[in-house]
Amino acid sequence: MRRRSTFLFTVMAFGFAFFYVPILSMIFFSFNASRLATVWGGFSTKWYAALFRNQQVLDALVLSLKIALLSATCATILGTMAGIALARFRRFRGRVLFSGLVTAPLIMPEVITGISTLMFFILLADWVGWPGSRGFTTITLAHITFSMVFVTTVVHARMLQADAAIEEAAMDLGSRPWQVLKDITLPVISPAILSGWLLAFTISLDDVVITSFVTGPGNTTLPLLIWSKVKLGVTPDINALATLIVLTVGAGVLIAGILLQRAERRRERDMQLAYRANQ
């Protein structure tokens, strides 16, 4: 029953307009010559030119990318381990606490994660003298912690779908655990690891609240820079910066989506060919 409902499709059209009109408006006004961000004063790309000369923005971008690369990579390693542990090791001591620990950060409000992590770092510095100052290290540690559980969720779901019997067969045929991990488990869950990494990278690159708590003087990530400017109001140079970010991310997601869809279609075709060949 694929009946066409005018009501449903009208709501959907309005919903997509709701999603995209604010972003398109922001992109449009980034080419505004006027200093007033919301009143049109002619076409200009001067805000983009100003952006590329703004050392503060470029420094913040580099710092954000460094933190995101490092924290996403560590979070992917730890998160994948946790996902494998939860999916394959049915019983170990403290499993209940462990599964609680990988879900709790997902629903913890960011403000609470922020103040708890900051109090932890301050008290730790008080007791053992480390971390002496807050900045790159503390931000990275905090980002690893809250993004690894997203990786765990993705990897765990994929592990539950994957067939454990293949791993057991490899063991019976004499493979060592390391070989099984390298040759079977990791290749099978590699799409999940990749999307987990991308997720962790994006979350790290995007975080404001937790970062604003655990950062120290002189360590301004790109979201923190935008946050401090946005609090003062709408300006055309933030419109330009936002446009660049949105378009970069949008293009990345679109390309990834198209590649994934193509890979899926190829896999389906291969499966059909294999099926026909066996008949």
């Binding site: 009109v21 604010p22 972003i23 408006s25 922001m26 006004f29 961000a37 919301t38 994006t202 690159l205 995007d206 404001v208 979201p223 935008i226 946050w227 946005v230 109001g233 709408v234 933030i238 419109n239 936002a242 970010i245 949105v246 991310v249 949008g250 990345g252 997601v253």
Partner: peptide, 14 residues
């Protein structure tokens, strides 16, 4: 996937 902060900002403009 796009920045949460910038989505809020987009509405400030509107």
């Amino acid at each position: 996937w796009t920045s949460f902060l910038l989505r809020v900002y987009a509405w400030m403009g509107l």
